[in-house]
Write a protein that binds this DNA or RNA. Structure first.
Length: 290
DNA sequence: CGCATTTGACCCGCGC
DNA sequence: GCGCGGGTCAAATGCG
């Protein structure tokens, strides 16, 4: 996602007239109100999300305190998972994430790696019950280099390296959740030093089941709303500070997607869009008459 | 034929 | 020191 922009500038190359100017001012005022309302909605969404994340962390911490039988190592793992949580549903994902510097992680044997690539994150992926593969579509290309059945989970754990290795040091472990086998738990270790090399391809090929055909639906949900006949509406999310970098965090992606969804579902927005388009058509008709 | 995946063997750290 | 378990390696296999 290089430029997640929706053009808010109204391309109204219209010859001015008195009553039209009034209409335009009115329209502009209305759009401003609409914009303000949407901004408030988005802010509210962000706040709710943060509150929920805090609550989740609290809950998880409480659970750890209540269960002292868990080993330290296990605790470290669980803490990591509670802090770094994605929730991806199918391929139209709802995700929320963060990355941390986890000095006390369970990967003690890789202390050197932790120093050089200290980013860890955990992703939960909801899959179909019939889907038994351990492949997680995350926009990157992975090469599987091992599989192992672990003691605490009967389902095998798959080990993946970024296909750009050794240039890219990122590794990923994927295992089905013990509680819900339809959920894949992917643990990422390190940070990619390159972009989503398959993202563009996946936009074209869409969803191809397998390790190569990666799909990044978040990036494909670029909220560009436009019309060939009407005005283009571009919300510059980068400028407004909502989206800084896709690689930094997926929160932004989530928010953008949520915003796009709420925009398309919002009848007021649809009405505004329809009004703007019809207004533009009328404008062009009046210009043609002139 | 080249590349990706599979899978058993091996390595290494940790706990007892 | 030994056993266990997680992580990695590498030969075998499959596929396009």
């Amino acid at each position: 996602m290089e430029s997640t922009c929706v053009d808010t500038s109204l391309n109204l190359n219209v010859v001015p007239s008195l009553h039209m100017a009034d209409n335009l001012v009115e329209e502009l005022h209305r759009l401003n109100c609409e914009n303000k309302r949407l901004t408030e909605k988005l802010t509210h969404l962000c706040e709710s999300y943060q509150a929920m994340q805090k609550q989740l962390s609290k809950l998880m911490n409480t659970n750890f305190e209540q269960d002292p039988t868990q080993s330290r190592k296990r605790k470290a793992d669980e803490t990591e998972s509670c802090i770094n949580m994605f929730c991806v549903r199918g391929n139209i994902n709802t995700e929320c994430s963060s990355t941390i510097n986890d000095e006390d992680s369970s990967f003690k044997r890789h202390k050197d790696n932790i120093i050089t690539s200290p980013k860890f994150s955990k992703v939960l992926v909801k899959t179909e019950a019939s889907n038994t593969s351990l492949y997680v579509m995350d926009g990157y290309q992975w090469r599987k280099y091992g599989q192992k059945v672990t003691r605490d989970n009967p389902s095998p754990r798959a080990y993946f390296r970024c296909s750009f290795a050794p240039r890219c040091p990122v590794k990923k472990k994927v295992q089905r959740s013990l509680e819900d086998p339809t959920i894949l738990v992917a643990t990422y270790e390190g940070e990619h030093n390159h972009g989503h090399e398959r993202a563009e391809l996946s936009m074209v090929s869409n969803q191809k089941d397998g390790p190569v055909g990666s799909v990044n639906v978040s990036s494909s949900a670029t909220p560009i709303i436009g019309s060939t006949t009407g005005p283009t509406i571009r919300l510059d999310l980068v400028q407004s500070g909502l989206v800084e970098s896709a690689q930094k965090s997926s929160i932004e992606k989530f928010l953008v997607q949520q915003m796009a969804t709420s925009l398309t579902r919002d009848p007021n927005f649809t009405t505004a869009l329809a009004t703007a388009i019809s207004g533009r058509i009328l404008d062009q008709t009046s210009v043609a008459k002139w």
